[in-house]
Simulated scan of single mutants.
Amino acid sequence: MTFRLGTRGSPLALTQAGMVRDALCAAHGWATERVALVVIRTTGDRVQDRALAEIGGKALWTKELDRALLANEVDACVHSMKDVETVRPDGIAIAAMLPRADVRDRLIGAASIEALLPGAIVGTSSPRRRAQLLRRRPDLRIVLFRGNVDTRLAKLAAGEADATLLAAAGLDRLGRGDIGVPIALDAMLPAPAQGAVGIEVRADDAAARRTIAAIDDATTSTCVLAERGLLAALHADCHSPVAALARLGDDGLTLAAELLDEDGTAHVVGQVTGANDPGADLAADLLTRAPVAVRRLFGA
């Protein structure tokens, strides 16, 4: 019987689905043909000229995949976890995550943020990246850049902006790790779940859950679920500039985060280590200390 993996059709999505297929085949001793990649086009792929927050948020990447999964047209769906909304539909469960890749952003078009010329134009559709850039360089002009990696690089090459930011993980997975320069984590924390590939199944499909669980990377799952727990506790949405990163160490899990207002003028940072509910604990601390301009973006 063929195991059907639902995926978006972008080059990166297909690469990540192929990674899941290969991991399943290695874990279960299957031939490659045992896993079929089922391409499902999403609204987020079709609409490229507006920010996600204006037209429905992260669900634009997932709702068609969710429908196919719940309709039993596929057995599991592959997602970039940073694109998966925090509250998922009833009947769908995250079953596994692959080992996390480089979580950093890469800057393309300049040697560093500081090296950008005064008034330089930077293309991005991310409220987080916009706010973080403007906090460091309020002179920059931020313009909307949407589309897959090739689309955004083509816009940059066409002179629509002087620079852009892309996730290092995506570039690495596409064999383009030589493009741009990584931005240090102490300069720019990533989006929650950045660099993680997750696989979802129907919650009541025990066989699929067992099949997918065999490829789970426990460390990645623990860290990403903590970051998603922070988003849930903050009531964050696509308008909310939030960065977060969880890491496991000798003292347990450490979750660090930054909340900003739209233009980076106001922000708050913090972290917790060894908490029983790190997302809720850190959210409470950040919202207590955050300026009003930040709190209003996080349901507080």
Score class of each variant (00 low, 15 high):
Leu60Gln: 10
Asp102Tyr: 13
Gly56Ala: 09
Ala59Ser: 14
Asp66Met: 06
Leu107Glu: 03
Ser126Ile: 10
Ala111Trp: 00
Lys63Gly: 01
Asp102Pro: 14
Pro89Asn: 09
Glu54Leu: 10
Ala68Gly: 02
Arg88Gln: 13
Pro99His: 09
Ile108Tyr: 08
Met97Asn: 04
Arg100Lys: 15
Leu60Gly: 09
Thr124Ala: 01
Leu116Met: 10
His79Thr: 10
Arg104Val: 01
Ile55Asn: 08
Leu70Asn: 06
Asp75Ile: 01
Ile94Leu: 14
Trp61Thr: 04
Ala68Phe: 00
Pro89Ile: 05
Gly56Tyr: 10
Glu85Ala: 13
Asp75Pro: 00
Pro127Thr: 12
Ala110Pro: 07
Ala96Tyr: 04
Asp102Trp: 12
Val84Glu: 02
Ala115Thr: 07
Val84Ala: 05
Pro127Leu: 03
Ile92Trp: 01
Asn72Ile: 00
Met81Val: 13
Ala76Asp: 06
Asp83Gln: 09
Ile113Lys: 06
Gly57Arg: 06
Ala71Phe: 04
Ala110Trp: 07
Gly56Met: 10
Arg129His: 07
Leu117Trp: 07
Ala115Arg: 08
Trp61Phe: 14
Leu70Phe: 10
Thr86Tyr: 01
Ala53Asn: 02
Arg104Trp: 01
Asp75Lys: 00
Thr62Asn: 04
Met97Gln: 08
Lys63Met: 03
Pro118Phe: 00
Arg129Asp: 09
Ala120Ser: 13
Val103Ser: 14
Asp83Glu: 13
Asp105Gln: 09
Thr62Trp: 02
Ala71Trp: 03
Ala59Val: 15
Gly109Asp: 06
Ala53Met: 03
Leu60His: 05
Lys63Ser: 12
Arg129Asn: 10
Asp66Arg: 12
Ala53Ser: 07
Trp61Gln: 04
Leu107Gly: 00
Ile92Met: 01
Leu107Met: 03
Glu54Tyr: 11
Leu65Tyr: 11
Asp105Asn: 10
Leu98Lys: 10
Val78Pro: 14
Glu114Gly: 15
Val87Trp: 02
Asp66Trp: 15
Asp75Gly: 04
Arg106Ile: 02
Ile113Thr: 08
Leu133Gly: 07
Ala76Tyr: 05
Trp61Met: 02
Gly109Met: 05
Arg128Ser: 05
Gly119His: 09
Lys82Gly: 03
Arg67Gln: 15
Arg100Asp: 13
Ala96Leu: 01
Ser112Ile: 11
Ala93Gln: 08
Leu69Lys: 03
Met97Arg: 03
Asn72Trp: 05
Glu73Asn: 03
Ile55Met: 15
Glu54Arg: 13
Ile121Cys: 05
Ala110Leu: 05
Val122Asn: 04
Ile92Arg: 00
Met97Trp: 02
Gly123His: 04
His79Ala: 10
Pro127Tyr: 08
Glu54Trp: 12
Ile113Cys: 06
Ala59Pro: 08
Thr62Gly: 05
Asp75Thr: 00
Asp105Thr: 04
Arg88Thr: 09
Leu116Ala: 06
Ile113His: 05
Val122Glu: 01
Arg129Pro: 00
Ile94Asp: 05
Glu64Asn: 11
Lys58Gln: 15
Leu107Cys: 02
Asp66Pro: 06
Ala68Gln: 04
Ser112Trp: 15
Ala131Ser: 13
Ala96Phe: 02
Gly57Glu: 07
Arg106Val: 13
Val74Asp: 12
Asp66His: 15
